[in-house]
Simulated assay, not measured.
Amino acid sequence: MNKSSTSQAVLHDRSDKETKWEPERLKRVADELKNQHPIEIIRWGVEQIGVSSITLACSFGYEDVALVDMVMKVNPEVDIFYLDTELLFEETYQVRDQLSERYQKDFIRVSSVLTVEEQASEYGPELWKRDPNLCCRLRKVEPLKKNLQGYQGWITGIRREQSITRAHAEVVEWDDSFGLVKLNPLAFWKTDQVWSYIREHGIPYNPLHDQNYPSIGCFPCTRPVKPGEDPRAGRWAGFTKTECGLHNSPVK
């Protein structure tokens, strides 16, 4: 990695708090960083936002396990959290435990105020079958919003290649939904690049990826993807829904 190619004037510009994250500044930073290795994008975030003010959202999918490795290389003190909907695949929890042991890192569990049983009592059983948007809001979006209130920036595994709703993601941008800086270090990486990184570094990953699950969420709402289908076709099959609301819907 060649840090010298990165504009120091942009990357180390420390503006006053009121103007630090103006859209134009973030656009300049994104332009400067988009051709950098994801580790350098993470490094910028940790240095500029602060190690205690930035966090990685980890779903334990293949993009995120790569990011865990990168974050740990930059600064192992960065908080890493996961949204435990209580409906995750057993394999997802196993990857969590493998990564925790490998990096000697405790992942922060973030969950809904309602258990699955309490949700069923209030909204009816298997809400995900009737209103997946509401289920995602209760089990993912609202817990995420609450957790992010303690940070000024978050790191995600979004890539432009994943779906049309993510095709314009920048490596650094302002997140209007949650009111903080959003880093997408893998935005311009292709699938093969992510897997090459995982294999090169021997990073544990979810075995469901080897069973035609390119995108893994909650087990009631995730199925294997058929040949030729969109990588996210296995999420919320039967609905027009393609996002859980974490990356495309303002939360007020």
Score class of each variant (00 low, 15 high):
residue 2 N to R: 13
residue 2 N to K: 12
residue 7 S to C: 06
residue 8 Q to R: 11
residue 9 A to P: 03
residue 10 V to I: 12
residue 11 L to D: 12
residue 22 E to W: 13
residue 24 E to M: 08
residue 25 R to S: 04
residue 25 R to H: 08
residue 37 H to S: 06
residue 39 I to T: 14
residue 41 I to S: 03
residue 44 W to C: 05
residue 45 G to A: 06
residue 48 Q to P: 02
residue 52 S to E: 12
residue 54 I to N: 04
residue 55 T to L: 14
residue 55 T to Y: 05
residue 55 T to H: 06
residue 68 V to Y: 02
residue 70 M to Y: 09
residue 73 K to E: 13
residue 73 K to Y: 11
residue 74 V to E: 02
residue 76 P to M: 12
residue 78 V to H: 04
residue 81 F to H: 11
residue 84 D to R: 07
residue 86 E to H: 11
residue 88 L to A: 12
residue 91 E to L: 06
residue 103 Y to W: 09
residue 104 Q to G: 15
residue 114 L to H: 11
residue 117 E to T: 09
residue 120 A to S: 12
residue 123 Y to A: 03
residue 123 Y to W: 03
residue 123 Y to Q: 01
residue 125 P to C: 00
residue 130 R to Y: 12
residue 132 P to N: 01
residue 135 C to G: 04
residue 140 K to E: 08
residue 142 E to Y: 14
residue 145 K to P: 05
residue 146 K to F: 06
residue 147 N to M: 10
residue 147 N to Y: 15
residue 152 Q to P: 07
residue 154 W to T: 01
residue 157 G to M: 01
residue 159 R to A: 01
residue 159 R to Q: 05
residue 160 R to Y: 10
residue 167 A to S: 10
residue 168 H to W: 15
residue 169 A to R: 06
residue 170 E to F: 15
residue 171 V to Q: 01
residue 174 W to D: 01
residue 175 D to F: 04
residue 176 D to C: 14
residue 179 G to E: 02
residue 183 L to D: 02
residue 186 L to K: 02
residue 186 L to G: 01
residue 188 F to S: 10
residue 190 K to T: 07
residue 195 W to F: 09
residue 196 S to K: 14
residue 198 I to W: 04
residue 201 H to I: 08
residue 215 S to W: 01
residue 217 G to W: 00
residue 219 F to L: 09
residue 220 P to R: 04
residue 222 T to C: 05
residue 224 P to F: 00
residue 224 P to E: 02
residue 225 V to R: 09
residue 226 K to H: 14
residue 227 P to E: 12
residue 228 G to R: 06
residue 232 R to W: 07
residue 234 G to Q: 01
residue 234 G to P: 02
residue 235 R to M: 06
residue 239 F to Y: 13
residue 240 T to Q: 15
residue 241 K to L: 03
residue 251 V to T: 13
